[in-house]
């Protein structure tokens, strides 16, 4: 029943790759979620309580999105690369933090 395409994809899912994906999903997902909450708090042109609340609400959706991406990516390396790009972009919002 399992298609050849799926089996080919699963070949990259031996333990090291799988473990790496789980770390990327659980910790990377949390990190991206946290960065989203920070970026919203810093960047949104709203009263700060509103911006903080919106950031918190969106962070969980971002977390879920990251987990889906990590397990849909073709290889573990691609999964990590896909985390790094938005992660760096979000982290850049730190520059706008209040001092």
């Amino acid at each position: 029943m399992v298609s050849a395409a799926f089996r080919a994809r699963m070949r990259g899912w031996r333990w090291p790759g799988l473990l790496s994906r789980i770390v990327a999903a659980v910790l990377g997902g949390y990190a991206i979620g946290a960065l989203v909450s920070v970026a919203c708090a810093v960047l949104l042109p709203l009263p700060r309580s509103e911006a903080v609340v919106i950031g918190m609400m969106l962070s969980f959706l971002a977390y879920a999105g990251v987990v889906l991406w990590v397990f849909a990516a073709r290889t573990a390396w691609r999964a990590w690369a896909g985390l790094l790009a938005p992660g760096l972009l979000l982290a850049a919002s730190w520059a706008g933090r209040p001092v």
């Binding site: 979620g33 946290a34 960065l35 909450s37 920070v38 919203c40 708090a41 810093v42 009263p47 700060r48 309580s49 911006a51 903080v52 609340v53 950031g55 918190m56 609400m57 962070s59 969980f60 933090r97 209040p98």
Partner: peptide, 29 residues
């Protein structure tokens, strides 16, 4: 359900905007 405890799970935006003063955030929100 996640939102009910979001201040515990994802406090980072609040930490930054309120410099760690959670009471100030709750009072304002």
């Amino acid at each position: 359900g996640l939102l009910t405890l979001m201040l515990m799970y994802m406090p980072w935006g609040m930490q930054l905007a309120y410099k760690g003063d959670q009471q100030a955030f709750i009072a304002e929100a």
